[in-house]
């Protein structure tokens, strides 16, 4: 960053101007996205009384972790419910994610590698689901689930979330497989691998970033989903977090600090997931499978 040449200052000024406006823009964007979260965290460490004060108290005079200890203590009735919902959500989301990978990987591989009648039609019909708003399918799916006898079960949600997540997963993974030269598999098969071994030992490791990225997408989709969970689940003990939190904390009067603490805890798994896997995630979205 040394500027010496006499003709440089002008252009340097221009780049500075660009750089600074870029930074300001990013800061604004950050404020826009982070402020509500910040407010959420601040509210979650207030007492119910402090949270309702007007004009609002930005920084709580007496910050408290009571809302969190209540939520995380299974002996407490609030905590009991919260942990149950958390467990339900985790179950539904993890199942959706794992099943999603098991369905999407072979499907994407087949679309990428095999030519079969109806391939193009099938591939685009996979996308059909995404061309309509999700609520359009609410009633048809409800009727279908009732017919299958699944209403009220977590299975109904897993199945539904799978259909929501799969199109993106299949498309993204197909792109990954397309990028892996077929000769790699051919080489492996000549080197003594079966077709399946070639896939497992050569193709899968190369598409790990893609599999992880699609897993994150399906997990988040399932973790945050509200409308279907609200419609399909009728038993209080089976509720997932988005519905459970909303029901519990607004049943009589809204307990804002409790609600915010619960919401904050709900965002923890997603944040952790992102932090742990972001390396793969970035790789998936920028590099593709094989760096050229």
């Amino acid at each position: 960053m040394s500027a010496t040449a006499p003709s440089r200052p002008r252009s340097r000024k221009a780049t500075d101007w660009w750089r600074w406006s870029g930074r300001i823009y990013l800061v604004l964007l950050l404020l826009f996205t982070a402020l509500p979260m910040f407010w959420m965290v601040l509210t979650s460490i207030k007492t119910q009384f402090a949270a309702m004060q007007y004009p609002p108290q930005w920084w709580p005079a007496e910050p408290t972790l009571e809302n969190y200890t209540k939520l995380l203590d299974p002996r407490n009735s609030v905590g009991h419910e919260f942990l149950l919902y958390f467990w339900n959500s985790l179950k539904v989301s993890v199942l959706t994610t794992i099943l999603g990978v098991f369905v999407a990987v072979p499907a994407a591989y087949a679309f990428s590698r095999f030519r079969f009648p109806g391939r193009t039609f099938l591939f685009f019909s996979v996308l059909l689901r995404n061309m309509f708003p999700a609520v359009v399918f609410l009633m048809p799916l409800f009727i279908l689930m009732r017919w299958l006898g699944l209403v009220g079960s977590h299975g109904s949600l897993v199945l539904t979330y799978l259909t929501f997540g799969l199109p993106l997963s299949i498309w993204l993974l197909k792109g990954f497989f397309d990028n892996i030269p077929i000769q790699l598999e051919q080489a492996a098969r000549i080197d003594g691998a079966t077709r399946f071994q070639a896939f497992l030992l050569i193709v899968m490791p190369l598409s790990t970033p893609g599999i992880i990225a699609t897993s994150i997408f399906s997990f988040i989709g399932a973790w945050n989903e509200y409308v279907y969970a609200l419609t399909f689940l009728n038993n209080k003990d089976r509720l997932t977090l988005p519905v459970g939190i909303q029901r519990y904390f607004t049943e009589f009067a809204t307990d804002w600090p409790g609600l915010m603490a619960a919401t904050f805890l709900m965002s923890v798994p997603v944040v952790v997931l992102f932090l742990v896997l972001q390396k793969y995630f970035v790789k998936a979205l920028t590099e593709g499978a094989v760096k050229h």
Binding site: P181, Q183, L184, Q186, A187, G192, R195, P205, L206
Partner: peptide, 20 residues
């Protein structure tokens, strides 16, 4: 016969080395 059972070796134009 499957390629693996033909006991042949092959060199590809793009080398097809396992990148990982």
């Amino acid at each position: 016969l499957d390629p693996k059972d033909r006991d042949i070796a092959m060199v590809f134009q793009n080398y097809a080395l396992y990148p990982n």
